[in-house]
Design a protein around this nucleic acid. Sequence first.
DNA 1: CCGATATGAATGAAAG
DNA 2: CTTTCATTCATATCGG
Lengths: 229, 229
Amino acid sequence: MEWENQEMQQAEEYLQYQIRNGLREKVMTDVQVEELRKQIVVYAAISEQLVELHKSMSAHHDFTGMRLGNLYCDSVTASIGHKITARQRWTPTPFQLQILENIYEQGTGTPGKQKIKEIASELAQHGQISETNVYNWFQNRRARSKRKLQASMAASATGEAESRTEDVVAKDKKTKPAGSDFADNIANRVESFYFQNSNAGIDQLIGKVESSRGYDSYTNLAEQYGLLG
Amino acid sequence: MEWENQEMQQAEEYLQYQIRNGLREKVMTDVQVEELRKQIVVYAAISEQLVELHKSMSAHHDFTGMRLGNLYCDSVTASIGHKITARQRWTPTPFQLQILENIYEQGTGTPGKQKIKEIASELAQHGQISETNVYNWFQNRRARSKRKLQASMAASATGEAESRTEDVVAKDKKTKPAGSDFADNIANRVESFYFQNSNAGIDQLIGKVESSRGYDSYTNLAEQYGLLG
DNA sequence: CCGATATGAATGAAAG
DNA sequence: CTTTCATTCATATCGG
């Protein structure tokens, strides 16, 4: 079947007419689709990562009210801003600390599993505590007293060129916090993003984003690529 | 201007003809575009997060210190004659962790030497790893899950008189491990994603993704939404 | 508000 | 396998 030139012309006019009057929906050409395609490709790939994040975070984090010690923490105090962190940690009361220190000073080394139970139950009378807390406390206490000792020994050896030591310290100061900032930044950002959309699944997120700023984003993006002119 | 019904019919047929024969490019309707729009909206929002991540990370981290898989080889600390311990311990990528957890959950006890080799080689595809790492991981995993079990049992046994302590114990067990896993997981995931595409800018990433699997991703995504039929 | 520091917690690795 | 050590991370607290 062949079409006369005049017929094509007429059909084209008709098509444009339909579009103008909403009788036919506006269309995108393959070229445009191709551009969108590229965008989606990239977005999809990147987004998969955060979706994965979301999943793993959801799996490991339940939002049932957390309580530890005497602190109640409403975990989902997620404001739109930042600082949504909900993790709480045990803090020994002065009394508990005193007892722990005493036991530690007694030099009975590391309390065994059984000993820990004893200590924990005793301390429990003076505040919320778990055996793990006791265990951790001794671990840290030992490790840190040892580190202090090392540090003091290193300090006593300051007889030599401290310029060298200075360099070491300087570099240490530089490298370590850098890494920490770095990681902190990541964690904070992602955490923030996650908690901002905490209870929402990815699907709900769709609606949320859409209603808030999504369409503007989309428009900008599309225009940038000359789509949807 | 009005169109006769017959003319519309003819024009429609012509349009379809053009499309069939490649004389006119295929098109997307507004409805379809709307769907794509939603996708892009979400993708864009999410992706912005990772792009920001990328920027902040680039700003804070120079790649003079290379990273082999998950092992940090800090050239700075290495160059110092002093005994600064560079980071040297293995850190499983989220993906590796997932696999390990899966295997562990399968309850197939301790993997034999052979099994470990298998696992290690599989995990090696997702990052630096050694058989020893796998071995240690299982050792620790087992030991710690056992410890936790003991602790929780002890807690419930000790907690007979707890009318005021309530279900604190139970929640204690849940909240504590969840916290750090959670954050670590985030950092690891993002870090992993970032380093996997370390040298590439986001723009280069585009090409990378496109050429590898991008179009397939797009196709799946589009089909899922009934687009591009 | 920010940075520095103290400390609770998590975890890979190694010792016993 | 069990226990311990070493390192790192995250948070709380405080002084500027």
